[in-house]
């Protein structure tokens, strides 16, 4: 508390002081008015001006006229992958030096690899090595799992395998999701999509196991793109065929790998018991995810007709259900 300033006021000082105060008050009023005019809300409360973004995932598909489908028999996933890639024209057909590759695995559940609910780490690691060997500048591996991401990547073995192979794991964070829509879609409108790991990427590869899926019939490479969605995506189970169709429209990968070395025949998509698995000793590689999944369905004792989303995706011009017309090359490793 300061002592009062000793002021012997004179009339002149009083006038000057009053003028000063008046100018200050006038300025404050003008400032308040200006601020109010500037901040004056002409919109309704709660109104937002977000326009839905469209086609947020780039098209990574190759249209080089090369062989679209290879089916490899065997038990060693790494060998099958190499064999399959060779059959399709070699990894060099897909990955050029300097490419930045994103591998979308299925790491949905925090369960060990041997239960077959997730992409096998051996396969993922070999794919990373193949890409790097072809000169890729970097290989990132990602998924937005259903269980806790860190645990999923750790317990499935994918995380350590990727690191050992020289790839980089991208564990999604909340800020990695941005709103996007798929052109011509009716479900994926303004929906959070895992887009951050796609930034700067030139090649996209999908790797999925063959699994029974209680709601969708089967979960293979097309259903695998579900892992790029964020938000309350469980609502999509109200129209599962519709969402897989739109995922096929949204994501056009460079190629996909469907691992049917062992297939989950029942209790999918989580499984949980070795009894749910059956050795089917097959790996399918292809640039047409619809055809790949259509063949994969046969491993589960089903046909493409049992999986309505395949026909719907085919009707969109994304691929063909009738894989035989693609003259798949059959190899064994």
């Amino acid at each position: 508390m300061k002592p009062p300033p000793p002021i012997p006021p004179t009339a002149d000082m009083n006038r000057r002081d009053f003028l000063q105060r008046s100018v200050r008050a006038g300025g404050a009023i003008a400032l308040t008015g200006g601020l109010a005019a500037w901040l004056w809300d002409r919109r309704r409360p709660g109104q937002s001006h977000r326009e839905p973004a469209v086609a947020s995932v780039p098209d990574f598909s190759l249209r080089d006229g090369g062989r679209p489908l290879a089916i490899v028999m065997g038990r060693d996933r790494a060998a099958m992958l190499r064999r399959g890639l060779d059959a399709l024209g070699g990894i060099g057909r897909f990955i050029r030096p300097g490419d930045r590759v994103l591998v979308k695995v299925n790491a949905a559940f925090a369960t060990p690899a041997l239960l077959g609910a997730t992409s096998h780490p051996d396969l993922v690691a070999e794919l990373v090595r193949q890409c790097l060997g072809a000169g890729a500048a970097g290989v990132a591996v990602t998924d937005n799992p259903i269980n806790d991401p860190e645990s999923c990547f750790m317990l499935t073995g994918i995380g350590p395998a990727v690191a050992a192979a020289g790839g980089r794991l991208h564990v999604p964070r909340a800020s990695d999701f941005t709103s996007g829509s798929v052109a011509g879609g009716r479900l994926l409108r303004n929906w959070p999509i895992l887009q951050a790991p796609l930034r700067g990427v030139t090649k996209l590869i999908g790797v999925a196991p063959v699994k029974h899926h209680a709601r969708a019939g089967a979960s293979m490479t097309l259903k695998n793109w579900y892992g790029l969605l964020g938000g309350r995506r469980n609502q999509f189970h109200q129209d599962i065929n519709g969402i897989i169709e739109e995922l096929a429209m949204l994501v056009r990968p460079t190629f996909v790998v469907l691992d049917g070395t062992s297939s989950m025949m029942a209790n999918g998509p989580t499984g949980g018991s070795l009894a749910d698995l059956k050795p089917t000793n097959t790996m399918i590689l292809g640039t047409d995810g619809v055809a790949v999944d259509a063949f994969g369905a046969t491993l589960l004792g089903r046909t493409a007709a049992d999986l309505p989303y395949l026909a719907r995706a085919a009707a969109r011009g994304i691929g063909t259900v009738d894989f035989a017309t693609l003259n798949p090359i059959r190899e064994s490793a």
């Binding site: 300033p5 002021i7 009053f18």
Partner: peptide, 12 residues
């Protein structure tokens, strides 16, 4: 009054 108090002012 239109001026500071002759008794002083504390504006803090």
């Amino acid at each position: 009054v239109p001026r500071p108090s002759a008794g002083g002012e504390i504006t803090a």
